[in-house]
């Protein structure tokens, strides 16, 4: 049976103006997210990988309308999110939450752990008094913190524990979708494993759907059901993870996969070494955005941006040559 999509995005764009334009020179634009379409099914984890600056965080923020999209539509459970009024949006926020990369920056350092976790409840006036305290204690327990931690301030916690507080806060309103923007990137490997396990447990227990953003291909492989690869504001390949990791089609995916160092000294690697840097998202290359660095470049790669085409039911690629 075909499962319904919890979140569906079509033609999403987010451009940021840079500098001051004037009469004779139009404003320059950062094409942070440029024509992105995908969907996430209920209960699944979609991994989103790509290099720094390719627009992963912007995409995550735009999905929750924490920044307004320039164009495109977002549907959440059949509702068109992009059409909701401010007030409607505020109540929809209970359903969709976000966790940030930097657990130092994402918590207000003047609030205690307890008041941070309880904040969503007071904002939405969900519980009061003793019920609220119980709910906070329950949430802290769920993320592996004790009630004795409640009165402490963020700076008294380690990075991993702070990330747990952020997770507890995101869970407080029983959301359906959580956008996790590099939630483990700032953590040490041993702590990273703890937090990944926690996210997986919570997903099973509360039937959560994740958009999991990361630049660590191993982490994404571990946690995701499907993976989308982003390059310069566009999804260049999206596929179930096994398929993507074992037989990538887009040359960029291939380069990315082979670039990650393998923690095995005996492994033989055949690496596709990319030359050059990621081009500027302001002055985009003409044609395929990847052609300047592409190892399989051909003449027709300059003829406009290729469309995202489906190779099979779940596997789509933005490349003319496969």
């Amino acid at each position: 049976m075909e499962q319904e999509a919890l979140l569906r995005v079509t033609g999403l764009k987010k451009y940021f103006p840079v500098g001051k334009g004037d009469l004779f020179k139009p404003k320059e634009m950062v094409h942070a997210v440029d024509d992105v379409s995908f969907e996430i099914k209920k209960g699944e984890t979609l991994g989103l990988v790509g290099e720094s600056g390719c627009g992963k965080s912007t995409l995550g923020m735009t999905l929750l309308r924490l920044t307004e999209p320039t164009a495109g539509q977002i549907w959440f459970e059949g509702k068109e999110v992009t059409r909701l009024s401010k007030g409607e949006m505020r109540s929809l926020r209970r359903q969709m939450q976000i966790i940030f990369q930097d657990p130092y920056a994402s918590l207000n350092n003047r609030m205690t752990c307890e008041s941070i976790v309880g904040e969503p409840l007071s904002i939405h006036k969900l519980y009061t008094g003793r019920e609220r305290r119980e709910r906070v204690a329950y949430l802290l327990g769920k993320v592996g913190l004790g009630a004795e931690h409640g009165k402490r301030y963020p700076h008294e916690f380690s990075g991993g524990q702070r990330q747990r507080i952020a997770i507890a806060r995101a869970l407080a309103m029983n959301p359906k979708l959580i956008v996790a923007d590099e939630p483990v990137s700032a953590l040490d490997v041993s702590i990273q494993a703890q937090v990944i396990n926690l996210l997986e447990d919570l997903q099973n227990e509360f039937d959560l759907t994740y958009l999991f953003i990361s630049h660590d291909l191993y982490v994404v492989e571990h946690i995701s059901d499907r993976v989308a690869v982003m390059y310069l504001g566009q999804i260049v390949e999206i596929a179930p993870k096994d398929e993507l990791y074992s037989s990538p089609i887009h040359p960029y995916t291939e380069a990315l996969l082979t670039a990650a160092p393998v923690p095995d000294p005996t492994a033989k690697r055949k690496r596709v070494l990319l030359t050059g840097d990621v081009p500027s998202p302001i002055h985009l290359p003409s044609g395929c955005r990847y052609h300047e660095r592409c190892q399989r470049r051909q003449v027709d790669c300059l003829d406009g941006v290729p469309e995202l085409v489906f190779v099979n039911k779940d596997h789509a690629v933005r490349c003319r040559h496969f």
């Binding site: 505020r90 926020r93 209970r94 939450q97 994402s106 207000n108 904002i123 939405h124 952020a166 309103m173």
Partner: peptide, 25 residues
């Protein structure tokens, strides 16, 4: 900053965010 965006993501109203999460800083 992230903590302000986080508060927005929780559905907090603007004046609440200003008074609680911005002015103290």
């Amino acid at each position: 900053r992230d903590h302000v965006v986080a508060a927005k993501a929780l559905g907090a109203k603007d004046m609440y965010i200003i008074v609680r999460h911005i002015l103290p800083y």
